[in-house]
Amino acid sequence: MTPPTATAEALLEVDGLAKSYGALDVLTGVDLAVPAGQALGIVGPNGAGKSTLLSVINGTERATRGVVRFAGRDVTSVSPADRARAGMGRTFQIPRPFTHLTVFENALAGASYGAGLHGHAADMRALEALEMADMLDVANAPAGSLPLLGRKRLELARALATEPRLLLLDEIAGGLTEAECDSLIATIRQLHGEGITIIWIEHVVKALTAVVERLVCLATGVIVADGPPDEVMRSAEVQRVYLGGGL
């Protein structure tokens, strides 16, 4: 299956990406091109390598093999900090708040460094990001005091504060109530509307399909399906990896 928008210029390209931890091969050769402005969803069973793929893309983990290109530049050996400064924002599946800082200061870290802003401009960007993630009311609370859902929203706010061109979302909707999920979908749809390229890993398929125009299914470290969401969800290959070979 060819990606539907492969003709447009790719903001992110990964070629033959592999990642192993000792003898364990988590990614075994992923090729993916994401055009600027696209919202791409990634699904796959637990242990498929989804989070690892995001980590290798943003540099939190080094690729064992393969190349990551961002905005036409080979960033395979570039530090995660420099990738963030170049415009890659990322949320973590298990939230990693700066617990002793306030929610505002958490966002300020992203605005000051990822977006490279100073003084008032950084403050304003941090507040904008908090507003987008609907966190202004808890801006002064210590991040350590947030419940799980607050921490997930903080992940999004912090990533947004870096003014990303590419937003990597790792299971941001997991554990949310229906209403919270709907508001999150609206937020991400709005970001997508503003032209931010999105790669979104999610188990809540309903949330994904409401936003993304392209879906990729990852299983045992390789892409097994790639295309429009409804087509991918119906494909025999995806049903097989999720439900076993019996179908």
């Binding site: 973590f92 700066f98 992203g110 490279g116």
Partner: peptide, 19 residues
């Protein structure tokens, strides 16, 4: 802010652009 971010979580600090 950078120092306290690093103290609380280095991986997240890096992902936000902090050297």
């Amino acid at each position: 802010v950078a120092l306290q971010s690093i103290r609380d979580n280095e991986v997240a600090a890096r992902a936000l652009g902090i050297h």
